[in-house]
Write a protein that binds this DNA or RNA. Structure first.
Lengths: 242, 242
DNA sequence: AAGTGGTCTAGACCACAGC
DNA sequence: CTGTGGTCTAGACCACTTC
């Protein structure tokens, strides 16, 4: 691979305090390869941020210097951002309306099935008991915001699948007299798989908040397991502790 | 750009239920361009996950089908993960020791200077008052974990710069009788700049938790502004609400 | 005007996977 | 053996930036 040769060359020049590489044409001649090969090799250096290029008369390929003074992350470019407070338990539609956005929900899938072992453990169910899982895509102002998968004990919410599933929290309260008062959440960051990327209209590999939640109702009974993927470019989490 | 032509072509084929594109050589002939141009165009489609290629006798360029059933994010590959609870205010060294890791801290920079407008507003200072800013790189078991920039009112912490700055929270309590009891945090995700990537030993563009914090002491006085960048692959945030 | 990177062409050889 | 993508070559023209 030509890329590795070039990487070594750049490392050597950096140690000598050199800032600029020869032009692509010169490099090709010196290394005895074609300009196309040089460009392919430089492409990986550019992708890794080791080198930048500038066109024009005094352009060229420049070695990036590490600047400890400016390590701040790049400001995201987003049409808007949604804030989600971790200090209170509210549903996404409520959240969005409160911030002036128009929420919409697309149900991707809803089904009832036997609870799996892990679900039984976390929801306190016995073997053979049923759960309802709902997979939804939520949007704010028609911009895709999050993918959510929610698992609920079927016994607590009979006939759930025939209801309007766009706002479960409202449905819990109004239809079943259950309110979520406490939630434990675990927040990580994951890369969007191609399918998630397609649904959320981001590039594959784009960062997503990956949030797992166990919610308890007013009787401290586990009532909901969730796995939410929020577009990281559109979402800010806020928390006041303790 | 050739890429756009190809994107339209792929969209058309997808609607017709076609799964496979012509070979690169055929495409070049049909579109009246060179194979190099075709490859360059396909490169962006591959990057966007719209298409995959396979080599060999029955290889070719295949259109990806979206599978709604498997949108879960890819599991991260990490040597270990550190959990940080958002329900309590503890310093990073304490946090790491509690989880069985060996913490280390490298001071990148520490200085005293005039407070800027935004800092004065947030810390409740008057023009001309001084602040101390400290920039640190924290590691767990010698693996870089986070970059932190902390800004403190100099008047509250006289002579701070001559102390051991590896654990500010301990220093606040033991040296100045100040304890942080409340903090407001705003959590986003950003991409590592090349400099941040170099220090944290991740690839440029890798996702980082970007956490801004305002901390209040026992008298509800703002005492600390912070901007922390945590490696997202190593960090999990947990919270129990309310 | 001169030199840079950005792009495209036409052709070649290679490694690989199936027939 | 055949057809695929993966890579490289040699050459050309373009847009852009600076002298």
């Amino acid at each position: 691979m030509i890329g590795e040769q070039l990487a070594h060359l750049v490392e050597g020049l950096r140690l000598q305090g050199e800032l600029k590489l020869p032009s692509e044409r010169e490099l090709a001649a010196q290394l005895g390869i074609s300009r196309g090969g040089v460009r392919k090799g430089l492409a990986t250096l550019i992708e890794n941020g080791q080198v930048v290029q500038r066109v024009g008369r005094n352009g060229g390929t420049y070695i990036r210097t590490v600047n400890v003074d400016s390590y701040i992350v790049s400001p995201p470019v987003a049409p808007f951002t949604v804030s989600r407070s971790l200090n209170e338990v509210v549903g996404v539609p409520t959240l969005l309306v409160d911030q002036g956005y128009t929420p919409s929900t697309r149900i991707l899938r809803a089904e009832e099935r036997d609870a799996q072992k892990r679900e039984r453990d976390q929801l306190g169910l016995s073997p053979g008991q049923r759960v309802v899982t709902i997979r939804r895509l939520r949007s704010a102002n028609e911009v895709p915001l999050s993918l959510e998968e929610m698992t609920l004990p079927a016994s607590v919410f009979p006939d759930l699948l025939s209801r309007d599933l766009s706002s479960i929290y409202e449905l819990m309260a109004d239809g079943y007299g259950v309110s979520v008062v406490t939630a434990q959440e675990r927040i990580g960051v994951g890369e969007a798989t191609p399918s998630a990327a397609y649904l959320l209209k981001v590039a594959p590999g784009a960062p997503l908040f990956d949030i797992e939640r166990i919610a308890l109702d007013q009787n401290n009974r586990p009532i909901e397991l969730s796995r939410d993927l929020f577009r990281a470019d559109l979402t800010r989490l806020t928390v006041t502790s303790p």
